[in-house]
């Protein structure tokens, strides 16, 4: 399709929307509200995910090395495990030193033990929280590993929470998408019905399906994009306010900076708007295409 035709059909989509502007505005308002909710949940989700990751980073995965095992060989083995992003070694001497420091005056007690009882220890950093249990299991299987420890219980709870919220968001997203799709389909269906005659004549004189469909696709696109635009602007505004107030109200809550949230939310909402507009209008005209 030539640019000139596309522009013309895009204009026709605008005319269609304006022709029943009351209905159009109502529909776009409802979709915008739905998008605002989606955006809000995305903001929460992104922050929760961040929170769980930063908590997970504080969970140390410690690998205690068996007496007499080769540190070099084990280090290579641990570094190769998928998900491991960093590794520190605490030698038994270092461990002893720090223990002595902790004990302070009572450090003499250690001399009763004689030989250094502490093992060499590797401290692993893992890319993402949900990878920790897998890394731990794999590390346990390596030669020369005595024991692997990490905050098994608390990590499990955290991961379950994030998981539950992801699923909930997904379900909510599907419900909201279906509801808005229903609105778009029905709004555009009314235009399609009002333009039945045009459609019939276009088909008669040899219009392709895409030509017939185009004005309605544009109409749907305008609806989806308007909603996405307003919702992301509003979402960003609210997030900015929250960021301003949060340090006073919730000083310990580590919120993501605005530029780590708003662009993602905006992109997601625009994608959803485009998908919504195109699929909704396609469904509306489908019956009139052959």
């Amino acid at each position: 399709m030539k640019l000139r035709t596309t522009v013309k059909l895009a204009g026709e989509g605008m005319t269609n929307l304006r022709a029943r502007s009351g209905l159009g505005i109502t529909a776009v308002t409802i979709i915008t509200l739905a998008f605002i909710i989606v955006g809000f949940f995305l903001q929460i989700y992104l922050n929760l995910d961040n929170l769980s990751q930063s908590l997970a980073q504080r969970l140390q995965l410690r690998v205690f090395v068996a007496e007499g095992a080769s540190l070099l060989q084990l280090e290579t083995g641990l570094r190769r495990l998928p998900g491991v992003s960093g590794l520190d070694i605490i030698t038994k001497e270092e461990a002893l030193q720090s223990l002595k420091k902790q004990l302070g005056e009572r450090a003499q007690l250690l001399e009763l033990v004689g030989q250094n009882p502490l093992p060499n220890t590797f401290v692993l950093q893992v890319e993402r929280a949900e990878l920790i249990p897998g890394v731990a299991a794999a590390a346990t299987g390596l030669d020369g590993v005595e024991e692997v420890v990490y905050g098994r219980e608390s990590l499990g709870k955290l991961l379950n929470l994030v998981d539950a919220i992801s699923w909930l968001s997904l379900a909510g997203g599907i419900v909201i998408f279906s509801a808005t799709l229903f609105i778009v389909v029905n709004t555009i269906r009314l235009t399609v019905i009002a333009r039945k005659q045009e459609i019939a004549i276009r088909r008669l004189v040899g219009a392709t399906n895409s030509f017939i469909r185009a004005p309605f696709l544009f109409e749907g696109l305008y609806m989806g994009l308007t909603a996405a635009c307003i919702a992301s602007l509003l979402g960003d505004l609210v997030y900015r306010l929250v960021m301003q107030e949060a340090p006073q109200v919730l000083p310990f809550l580590p919120l993501l900076p605005r530029n780590a949230v708003s662009p993602l939310v905006t992109v997601a909402l625009f994608l959803m708007g485009i998908l919504l507009g195109l699929s909704g209008s396609s469904i509306s005209v489908r019956r009139y295409l052959r």
Binding site: Q197, I201, R203, L204, V205, G206, T208, N209, F211, R290
Partner: peptide, 20 residues
């Protein structure tokens, strides 16, 4: 999707004009 190109080679007129 080939039908439209056939239609462009055929003119059709009806009893009820079918003008917009």
């Amino acid at each position: 999707r080939e039908i439209p190109y056939l239609r462009r080679k055929i003119g059709v007129v009806f009893q009820d004009f079918r003008l917009l």
